[in-house]
Amino acid sequence: MIPKVELHLHLEGAAPPAFIRDLAREKSIDISGIFDDQGHYAYRDFAEFLKVYEAACEPLQTPEDFRRLTLAVLEQSAEEGVVYTEAFLSPDFCGGGDVAAWRDYLPAIRDAADQAEATHGITLRGIVTAIRHFGPDQARQTALCAAETADDWLTGFGLAGAETVGMPGDFAWSFDCAKEAGLRLTAHAGEWGGAQMVRATLDALPVERIGHGVQAIDDPALVDRLAEDGITLEVCPGSNVALGVVPNWAAHPIAKLRNKGVKVTVSTDDPPFFHTTMRREYDRLSETFGWTEDDFFALNHVALAAAFCDDATRKRIAKKLERP
Rank of each mutant, 00 (worst) to 15 (best):
P3D: 07
H8N: 12
G13V: 03
A18K: 14
A18L: 14
F19R: 11
I20V: 15
L23F: 05
L23K: 13
R25Y: 03
E26N: 03
E26F: 00
I31R: 07
S32I: 03
I34G: 02
F35C: 07
D37K: 12
D37L: 12
D37G: 14
Q38S: 13
G39V: 01
H40R: 14
F46A: 09
F46I: 15
A47S: 12
E48Y: 01
E54W: 12
S77L: 15
E80H: 12
Y84N: 12
E86W: 08
P91H: 10
D92N: 14
D92P: 08
D98S: 13
D98P: 07
A100Q: 15
A101C: 11
R103Q: 15
L106M: 05
I109R: 00
A113T: 02
A113W: 07
A118F: 06
A118I: 03
G121C: 06
R125F: 05
G126P: 04
T129Q: 03
H133W: 02
R140V: 05
T142M: 02
D151E: 08
T155M: 00
T155K: 00
G156F: 04
L159S: 03
G161Q: 01
G166V: 00
A172F: 04
S174D: 08
C177Y: 10
A178W: 10
K179D: 14
E180A: 15
A181G: 09
G182E: 13
L183Q: 12
L185Q: 11
H188D: 12
A189C: 08
E191P: 13
W192C: 14
W192S: 15
W192Y: 14
G194D: 06
G194R: 05
V198N: 02
A200G: 00
D203K: 02
R209H: 06
H212P: 09
Q215A: 14
I217C: 06
D218R: 10
D218W: 05
D218V: 01
P220K: 06
D224V: 13
A227I: 02
A227G: 04
E228Y: 03
D229Y: 07
C236L: 10
S239P: 06
N240I: 07
N240M: 02
G244V: 01
A251D: 14
P253S: 11
L257K: 09
K260F: 07
V266D: 04
P271R: 01
H275P: 00
H275G: 02
M278G: 02
D283L: 13
E287N: 13
E287W: 06
E287T: 03
T288G: 10
G290F: 03
W291D: 01
T292K: 00
T292Y: 00
E293Q: 14
D295L: 04
F296C: 03
A298I: 07
H301T: 02
A303C: 09
A303F: 09
A305Y: 04
A306Y: 08
A307I: 06
A307W: 09
C309Q: 11
D310W: 08
D310Y: 07
D311Y: 08
A312F: 05
R316L: 10
I317G: 08
I317L: 11
K320Q: 13
L321P: 02
L321W: 04
E322Y: 03
